[in-house]
Amino acid sequence: MADGLTIGQAAAFVGVTVKTVRHYHRLGLVAEPERDSSGYRRYRSTDLLRLVQVRTLAGAGVPLAEIGELLDTGPERFAAALDDVRRRLTERIEDLVARRDTLLRLAQGDRALLPDRACAVLDRLADLGFTDDYLATQREALVLTRALVPEVFDSFLSVLEHWIDDPEFVELTKRGWEARFRDPDDPRIEELASAMAERLLANRALLAMPNGFLNRSDTASRYGLVNHHREEQVPAVARLNALIEAKLRAAGVDFPCR
């Protein structure tokens, strides 16, 4: 490389086209080398370094109009600018990874709408023998919670994760689901409500609402849409839920007022 590289060789070395190198020249980002005795412009190491710098910054998303000033600035400002470019690249990478993961979820049903933690809860419910129609209802409840009351979504998952590890509560929940076929005035619904409320109160801390949630003006309507969805289609379940809620309120547990 005693005499330097031709423009074609320089472009190939840097990883761009000859047209791109000439575009950099026109913008003043890279000075054109002097011609040698044969009339060819020869690119030496300093020219190649400048080309690599321009190509790298442009590839990182820095506008061409800003690159010249950036390269000609002092070392401290240049280092700070590079840090900013790295930050923006990291954000782009994270966004692309998120988009890639979303694409993968599109082919996996629940995972297009719910995070892995929620899907794990649904998988656990299936393993515990809950019916498909119960799983569908629970899935819808999770999606509604995430969409309408996202501030309680994590705590809702924590409650579910706790209770599905409690065999007694799992059995009560299955009995509650089976009760949907009963008459709303069936005395067994009252008995079941008492048993479920008692079991829930055994771990009162799990019933606490997030700080500030109860004070919001739209809390009751959003909470009601989630906690009482589809009840009008199943009167027995509506009565069971109302009885449980009344018993918890009587025990001092706060719920959004409907």
Rank of each mutant, 00 (worst) to 15 (best):
P184Y: 11
A112K: 04
Y40H: 12
T145K: 03
A197P: 06
L225E: 09
R35K: 13
T137F: 12
F181E: 15
E66P: 01
D183T: 07
V170I: 09
R216P: 03
L135F: 11
L148W: 14
M209R: 12
V170K: 02
V237M: 09
V121E: 15
V152Y: 06
L225D: 05
D47I: 00
L128W: 09
F13T: 11
L51W: 11
A250G: 08
T131G: 15
T219S: 14
E94K: 10
R86L: 08
V14M: 08
L114S: 10
F213N: 07
L125T: 06
V97L: 07
R41C: 03
T6I: 02
R139S: 12
M209W: 12
D123N: 02
L5P: 00
I93V: 15
E232K: 10
T6V: 00
L248T: 04
L240G: 04
Q53I: 06
N215H: 12
R77M: 01
V152E: 13
D165P: 03
L148H: 07
V237N: 05
F153C: 10
L48A: 04
V143W: 09
L148K: 05
V52E: 14
L214S: 09
L157I: 07
F255K: 00
E190H: 15
H162A: 11
D254Q: 14
P167T: 00
E168I: 04
G39A: 05
G28M: 10
L248D: 02
R180Y: 05
T173M: 12
A107T: 15
F13R: 13
D84W: 01
H229K: 09
G39T: 08
R199S: 14
E232D: 11
H162R: 14
L106H: 09
P184G: 01
Q233C: 08
H228T: 13
R182A: 07
L29E: 04
G4P: 00
I93D: 13
G59R: 00
V16G: 06
A147C: 11
V170Y: 05
R199T: 06
E191D: 15
L106I: 10
K174A: 13
G68F: 06
C257A: 11
W163C: 06
A118C: 10
P210K: 14
L57M: 10
T17K: 12
D101Y: 07
Y223Q: 04
V18E: 12
Q233A: 14
D123H: 03
N215I: 09
E66V: 02
R175A: 14
A195H: 07
V253A: 06
T6P: 01
P256T: 08
L104V: 14
D218K: 07
G109F: 00
P210G: 07
L192M: 12
T90H: 08
R100E: 13
A242Q: 13
L71M: 02
W163G: 05
N211T: 15
T90S: 11
E151C: 07
E232Y: 13
L113M: 15
H162I: 03
R180Q: 15
L71P: 00
